[in-house]
Design a protein around this nucleic acid. Structure first.
Lengths: 196, 196
DNA sequence: GACACCTTACTAACCAGTAAGTAAAGTTTC
DNA sequence: GAAACTTTACTTACTGGTTAGTAAGGTGTC
């Protein structure tokens, strides 16, 4: 009985999935290969077979985030800036509702100083890509007249990103933070809440 | 040669200072008693004498932050909301300029899930106090007409806090973030930049 | 002599990482 | 198509280092 679809490298992917869960709940320094191996039902060394060093695992994780984010951006090229922002809000909500996870950039920048250099470089690139996207949203929204706000699109993009990153963290001590924050960002952009 | 001033518990305070430095640069999980003892020039067990468990040290750290923040708030009761906000900006800048530290609430909420319960409780109280203060600034600023912004003071306070917390973290990958962010928050509040 | 403040010396647990071996599946060669 | 091999995906067993934490002892000061 062999599966028809290609199951190539199934374990590698499952390791990444478990590692992602651990990264967003506990942080990179606070999870070990033991956590992964016991969750996966294999021995410790099996994880090292797929990702020899923990750094390799970390780099693979960030690269996957970057690919995902790229696809996220491309997948909604046709939407209005406001709609794209709402999609990002939804993404943020999903993180929180999944075990009070925080966003990857939040963990990576917080633990930045203790990360190996390869991970720092990946983190830099990842954060850059996210900021560029946020700025683009703010710029397009102003251009097409759908968003009205003080300051430059650069500043507004950075503010939205920083606020949501900090907000996801603060939500762990008060779960109303996220709702408040989304509503306030809409208000600052001169947007109305999305219809129910 | 004995110092005239009371040096009572000098070591305890120095341990806290070193631990604070480590907390804000590396995070609570990523520093050990070894880091402290070698920085202080004593043996490991000496740290345990002053703070038997690492949790004790963590709780003491947060409690000191709470006392400090309380004093910070009280010390500038007479200032205008805008002036108080600028003081907070200055505080934020100081963190970054000191080894790219991030703010305590950023670390505590990010590592929240891995912290012992006593530290979580202290962190909750600390974040609450900070949020209350931020909201009060926004509320007073609207009342006296010095700040003009969309949304409620509650939402604006949370946004400022979240944005600065996230901004300090993001500044590690791009040091222009903080400057941009401060300017944008001023813009959103209808404030002009402080005179040079 | 009691106390504050440290030391040396230790334990038990955990950590990332490695080496060597194994079983099964896949590939090559005749 | 069967024997010979190579590769994949693990296992067991280990090393060396770090971790928080403890116990017992020493030393100077009031």
């Amino acid at each position: 009985m062999k599966p028809a679809t290609d199951m190539k490298n199934d374990t590698s992917k499952r390791i990444l999935d478990i590692a992602e869960e651990l990264l967003l709940t506990r942080g990179f320094n606070a999870f070990s290969y033991q956590h992964i191996s016991s969750a996966l039902g294999v021995r410790n060394a099996a994880i090292h077979y797929h990702y020899p060093k923990k750094t390799d695992l970390g780099v693979a994780l960030i690269q996957r985030y970057r690919r995902r984010f790229q696809r996220f951006v491309e997948a909604q090229g046709g939407l209005t800036p406001a709609q794209q922002l709402e999609r990002y809000f939804t993404l943020t909500d999903a993180y929180f509702e999944h075990d009070q996870q925080i966003c990857p950039s939040g963990i990576l920048t917080t633990e930045y100083q203790t990360l190996p250099e390869e991970m720092q470089q990946q983190a830099n690139a990842f954060v850059d890509e996210m900021r560029d996207w946020a700025v683009r949203i703010a710029a397009c929204g102003r251009e097409d007249g759908s968003m009205r706000y003080a300051g430059t699109p650069q500043a507004m993009g950075v503010l939205m990103l920083a606020a949501l990153q900090g907000g996801l963290q603060l939500a762990r001590t008060d779960q109303t933070v996220l709702l408040t924050l989304k509503e306030q960002i809409r208000a600052l952009l001169g947007l109305t809440s999305p219809l129910p």
